[in-house]
C-alpha cells in the first residue's frame, strides 16, 4: 500500500482531480461526454501522446530537454512508410516499424552524443537536430516521390484491437508505461536517472559513467517519439511532413503538469499519465464545447484555433502556478 501511495504525490492528485472536474464540466455541456465509448476513444488518442511523453520524461528527469520531438515523430512516421525505398519491397514492409523506430533512435543518439559527450546545452542542440531532421525529411520527399502509405501492420497497430475492447496503442502505452515505471523505481538505472537530475557531479563522483545514462535516455526519447510517429502514420493511414508539429507543447506540458520538475530529479510516471490524459481531454473538450459559437453570438467571429491555443497556454500557466512553483531558495 505504501509503495502505491508513494507514486501519488500532490501534483498527481491535483492533476487527477482536474481530470474529474473537466469531465464533469464536459458532461454538463454534452451528456455523451461520460459514455464509455467516448472515454475509450480519448484514451486511444491519449496513448499517442503518452508514448512520446514517456521518452521525453526520462530526459526531463535528467534535467535536460528534448525539443527535437516534432520532427523525430515525423522521421519515425515517414521512414516507416518509406522503408520500402531503403530496404526493398519485401523487407521494407516487414521491417517498416523497426526501421522507423531505428531512425528515431539514431536522432536520439546524435542528441545524446552532443549533450552527454560534447556537453552542449540540450535545449539548443536538440532544437538544431529538429531543424536538421526537418531538412532531411524535406530532402527525402523532394528528391523522389516516396511511399507514404502505411503498411497493414502499422494500420493494425494503430487502430486494431488485440484484446477486444482495448485499442492497440493503449495496450502499447500500458506496456511501455509499466516497463518505464519498473525502470524508474526498481532498477539502478532509474536511481541513476533521478540522481543525475539532482546533482550530476555527485553521481559522477560515486563512480557512475553519467554520460552513458544520458546517452541512453536521449536514444530512448528518440525511439519513443519515432514509435509515436509510426503509430500516427498507421492511424492516419499515411505519413506527412508536419505530423509531429502539434506534439511539442502538449508533450512538455503533460509531463510538467504531471508534477515532474523541469530542472530534473523529481517526478513520478503516474503523474505523467495523469498529465497526458488531462491534456488530451482538455484538447477534446475545446473541440466539443466550441467556445467560438458563444463569441459568434456576440458578433465576434474568431477562428476555433484561437481558443485552442489561448486556452491551452492559459491553462498550462494556471496549473503550473497552482503547483509547479519553484521553492524560493535564498
Amino acid at each position: 500500500m505504501n509503495v502505491l501511495a508513494r507514486q501519488f504525490d500532490r501534483a498527481t492528485i491535483i492533476a487527477f482531480a482536474c481530470i474529474l472536474v473537466l469531465l464533469c464540466i464536459g458532461a454538463l455541456a454534452e451528456p455523451s461526454f461520460l459514455s464509455p465509448k467516448y472515454l475509450l476513444q480519448q484514451l486511444h488518442v491519449a496513448s499517442f501522446l503518452g508514448v512520446v511523453a514517456t521518452g521525453v520524461m526520462l530526459v526531463i528527469l535528467l534535467g535536460h530537454i528534448d525539443l527535437s520531438i516534432p520532427w523525430t515523430i515525423g522521421v519515425g512516421g515517414m521512414m516507416a512508410t518509406g522503408a520500402t525505398g531503403f530496404l526493398g519491397p519485401e523487407l521494407g514492409v516487414t521491417l517498416a516499424v523497426p526501421f522507423g523506430i531505428f531512425c528515431g533512435a539514431c536522432i536520439g543518439l546524435i542528441n545524446g552524443l552532443g549533450v552527454a559527450y560534447l556537453r552542449a546545452p540540450a535545449m539548443i542542440f536538440t532544437l538544431g537536430m529538429n531543424a536538421v531532421a526537418q531538412g532531411l525529411m524535406v530532402w527525402h520527399t523532394g528528391g523522389f516521390a516516396p511511399q507514404d502509405r502505411a503498411t497493414p501492420l502499422m494500420r493494425e497497430l494503430a487502430v486494431g484491437q488485440l484484446v477486444t475492447g482495448i485499442p492497440n496503442p493503449l495496450l502499447i502505452w500500458a506496456v511501455l508505461g509499466i516497463a518505464t515505471m519498473f525502470l524508474l523505481n526498481r532498477t539502478s538505472l532509474g536511481r541513476k536517472i533521478y540522481a543525475i537530475g539532482n546533482q550530476e557531479r555527485a553521481v559522477f563522483l560515486s563512480g557512475v559513467d553519467t554520460r552513458r545514462v544520458l546517452l541512453f535516455c536521449f536514444v530512448f526519447s528518440g525511439a519513443c517519439a519515432a514509435a509515436t510517429g509510426t503509430l500516427l502514420a498507421g492511424w492516419a493511414n499515411r505519413s506527412y511532413q508536419a505530423m509531429g508539429d502539434p506534439y511539442l507543447l502538449p508533450t512538455i506540458a503533460a509531463i510538467i503538469l504531471g508534477g515532474t520538475n523541469v530542472l530534473g530529479g523529481r517526478g513520478k510516471y503516474v503523474g505523467t499519465v495523469a498529465g497526458v490524459i488531462l491534456i488530451t481531454i482538455l484538447q477534446s473538450m475545446l473541440s466539443v464545447v466550441q467556445p467560438q459559437r458563444f463569441f459568434a453570438d456576440l458578433g465576434l467571429d474568431l477562428p476555433a484555433d484561437t481558443f485552442r491555443q489561448v486556452v491551452f497556454g492559459v491553462v498550462i500557466i494556471a496549473m503550473l502556478l497552482l503547483y509547479g512553483r519553484q521553492q524560493l531558495v535564498r
Partner: peptide, 10 residues
C-alpha cells in the same frame, strides 16, 4: 534551408 540552418546551429 532548414537542414543547413540546423547544421550551422549544431
Amino acid at each position: 534551408q532548414p537542414l543547413f540552418v540546423g547544421i550551422v546551429l549544431l
